[in-house]
Design a protein around this nucleic acid. Structure first.
Lengths: 182, 182
DNA sequence: AGATAAACGGAGTGGTGACTTCGAATATAT
DNA sequence: ATATATTCGAAGTCACCACTCCGTTTATCT
């Protein structure tokens, strides 16, 4: 690939991430304008709008998986789990698309995005079981319902445009339900 | 209004509730076809698509408020609160639009829908405070975060197409966080 | 039953958005 | 520097959708 083509591809991804993050129903023209390229250039790199969306989604999922792994290396298991949970929800509140991405991850057709979704969920599951072993999360909570909580909290925070203080109180309610009986 | 006109209006509302419930991006033609009327008839009753959506939303919100009031009369306060919460989430899982409705209720422009949203939230708040007085919900949980939980659980369940069993386990985690320390 | 006002439906209209075409521009190899 | 293969972008095409127009039908009143 020629150097200018690679540049443009990166700029399109960045622009798409930004534009779709603000308004998921934005048009391809919007993305092209924001990226400073022609429409045709967008379609040359991503033959269909769906593929562009999937590329953005994949990137976001990969970043989240990366973040989960960092935390699992750096912090105490309980802290790592709750911090990751909080961070995902906080980012969703300001970036609509992450929530949609998380949702779509379970049902998306594109092989790449599916793989990224599996990776991210797997990393989250590792955080969960480590936190359970450390006694920071009750052991009778299983992955599916905890993941459902993560998605729900993200989408709820995004949809309702919660103030940060309310969002934190909501998260604390959730966390109290996740902690072991004392 | 002529009798046939009133009939058609009702059929259009029912059809819209069904069609938009399955796919919120459905076209007005879809609604007309499902209702068995021409497109023009739909637009005669609801001059714009937004107004049709708002009418459906308002109806749903009013039904929810009604349900909340019934429960608050019939059941013990704690039971009434948790049952209402569960029912809203369950219905959202099968009817996408309720979640969107709940979300939109906070920000919708139409005066009628706003009023219906206020009424529904107020009825939910009554359930909450009664349950708190009865010792079934911790008293330091305030309305905004509890309502945020309701929206989040609804949207999460809808978006992720949770199996009922997982949904119930997720709700139990939430409820454990809402119950008073024992 | 006949008159008439109200309501109906189907065929437009205009605008938008995904995707294509093709001549102009530009990176890279020699 | 020049050739050439690759990439670019502006101006299309086509399909879809919200909304309108108007000739036809139908409920209701006398």
């Amino acid at each position: 690939m020629r150097a200018d083509a690679r540049d443009n591809r990166a700029r399109i991804m960045t622009a798409a991430d930004d534009v779709f993050g603000r308004s998921p129903s934005a048009s391809t023209d919007d993305v092209a304008r924001q990226a400073g390229v022609g429409i045709a250039t967008v379609f040359r790199h991503f033959p269909t709008k769906t593929e562009l969306l999937e590329a953005v989604l994949t990137l976001r999922l990969e970043r989240l998986r990366e973040r989960a792994r960092e935390l699992s290396g750096d912090a105490a298991p309980g802290k790592a789990f709750y911090e990751f949970f909080t961070q995902v929800v906080s980012e969703s509140a300001s970036k609509l698309a992450i929530a949609e991405a998380l949702t779509a991850a379970g049902a998306v057709v594109g092989a790449e995005a599916q793989e990224a979704g599996r990776g991210m969920r797997s990393a989250f599951n590792d955080l969960l079981t480590a936190a359970q072993r450390a006694g920071a999360v009750r052991t009778d909570a299983e992955f599916p319902e905890v993941y459902a909580l993560l998605i729900g909290a993200s989408r709820g925070a995004t949809a309702a445009k919660l103030e940060p203080a309310v969002r934190d109180r909501m998260l604390n309610l959730i966390y109290d339900g996740l902690k072991p009986y004392s």
